[in-house]
Design a protein around this nucleic acid. Structure first.
Lengths: 192, 192, 192, 192
DNA sequence: CATGAATGAGGATTCATTCAT
DNA sequence: TATGAATGAATCCTCATTCAT
């Protein structure tokens, strides 16, 4: 329906604007009015789609996280070997992190800052369940270190966030070669 | 001098209050008035010590970063072997990260957020120069992977930040054993 | 349109309040909040119509100056004799000065004080162009002293401002007779 | 006495600073702290010499007015003819107005603005008593128009203030010749 | 659904003034 | 007498949110 579509478009525009503005200015220093302006909408209209500013950010966070997760596992097949399976997931995460900087940067900011409601963030790393399952299998097979998921995540996945920020601050450029190197470090850090 | 000491005390109280409040509420949502109240001074007094809110946060950041760096290298001796040297530095960082959560959390927030002036953050990871030197030596000796500093940092040091946050959100407890495990992952990720 | 009219009314109320308060208290000592209260709007509303306090005063100044000029030349006809022409303009200025004390006093305060932006005041006495033209003609016909416009203005027009203030401070009452006397002085001061 | 002199020096420095700052920024926008700084004195010290900010400005006004008056009549001799007497006083006023712009500008601002207490300004033009006496004599001798003092003042003396401001705003330069012209206008405006 | 005008509550900052020394 | 540190009270301005249309 054209009408419904228009609504969805507006909601999307608002979320897009939120991401861009929060990325560049932080949550503070992004007034609702600016978000409205960038989305070509009246400030009052925001409140038809979201309860309030907090809700807007929370929903934006969840939306982006969902995009992230579904991209990451889109190509995943459960029956690959541990290393191959991990490599595929890792490369997808790396691809997302680098190609969708806006999304990744936003997620990162939310994860390191009290701008998101506890409840929205509470899930932690559960959204990566297939990866956690893979690790579990790997631990059983003696291929992955018998460490907690958080440790494995901290050393093999999270570093990509740091590289993203370093790149954004132009201290560093993440080339193809370097991604391969990064993967090697990631794998070494978790493999038995 | 009693007067000078009083001034220093006040400045410290302000910085302490800033850290605590920004950690819990974020830079936005910590009004100067609350900082003043927590430091037991009038809001106007803040402006005797800092130019404005931005300056207060910038200076707080630099102060904390300095504490961090000097703690980390306090016990460092250059002529240890690569692995021992790295282990010592890493453990000091881990110790600081876990014991001085307030400081670490604050640093982390500043590093992942546009609340700090570019110029204040510009240094990147240069403050860890002795560690970078160690890596350089390690690469030459063929003990450390021949990767860029940022990659080594991302995989061996930065993960501690993630573990800190996970702990703060009570998803995870970082026990002695787990620190040992974490170190093992760190070392595996960078060793040749 | 009712809505547009309401907007215009509000803007006018704000300008009126500004004039009255600045006249009585000076630019300092007239907080925006008082202006808002007198105009029956919220302080925040002022900022829908004016960029900031400076802009409010600048615009008020320009508005009042426009009222002044158009009143002064409303009845003017170019082809009268020099003396008649001058008398008509002078009398209109006198009328405005005395009947619209609020406006005149405000203009006077702006002209003698650094509360107005240079740019807003820059025009000087150019707004009285028809009078300047008349003087030019008068000089050519040998009826007016061959002096600079500023001198003619200083001695024939500006004195009314002083009389206004003297009256406001109740040192002096400007009666019909005295206006005639004043005109005589004005004319004598510029006539050849 | 050296001590007394030092006190007087400080008071003078404060008054000088007040004049300069109020001239350039207006009464608002000249904080006590700036006055103190310009006078090389602590803010607290001001309150040893003046009750408060209002008192400081009032006293500055009176001081400057006194300087003005005594300069104007310094060379005056009562027994000159009306025209000569007037010319002498007028020229002294012109000299003061042009040479001591800072003082004149300050006086002018106080006279056209509600920054001075009514009581301090109440005297009006009484400080020019010898001139008023001269006019009275002139009226009796039929040489001066039989008009109120305020009118004579408005047209013959006050115009100099306008010329001062025009000059300050660089619309106009007051040369020797122009001063002669101005005098002619002044005299014509009051002479019978 | 959509809006733009309106606003109350609050925030950063300034400043005249005081006070302990 | 002189001061610099300290502050409470104000001031300008912003912004999330609402409401009449």
């Amino acid at each position: 329906m054209a009408k419904l579509q228009k609504s969805i478009d507006k909601r999307n525009a608002l979320i897009k604007a939120t991401i861009e503005l929060v990325n560049n200015n932080g949550f503070h220093a992004t007034p609702m009015s600016k978000i409205a302006k960038m989305a070509n909408v009246s400030p009052a209209t925001i409140y038809l789609y979201f309860e309030n500013k907090q809700d807007l950010v929370n929903q934006t966070y969840l939306e982006v996280k969902t995009k992230y997760t579904s991209f990451v596992f889109e190509t995943y097949e459960e029956n690959a070997s541990i290393k191959i399976g991990f490599e595929r997931i890792w490369k997808r995460i790396a691809e997302f992190t680098m190609n969708e900087c806006e999304y990744s940067f936003f997620l990162n900011q939310c994860n390191n800052t009290p701008i998101i409601d506890e409840s929205s963030r509470k899930e932690g790393i559960k959204h990566l369940q297939p990866l956690l399952d893979l690790w579990e299998r790997g631990r059983k097979e003696g291929l992955i270190k018998p460490f907690a998921d958080h440790i494995l995540y901290a050393f093999s996945i999270n570093p990509l966030s740091f590289l993203l920020i370093a790149q954004k601050q132009e201290e560093f450029r993440l080339t193809k070669t370097r991604i391969e190197e990064a993967f090697q470090s990631a794998w070494d850090s978790i493999k038995q």
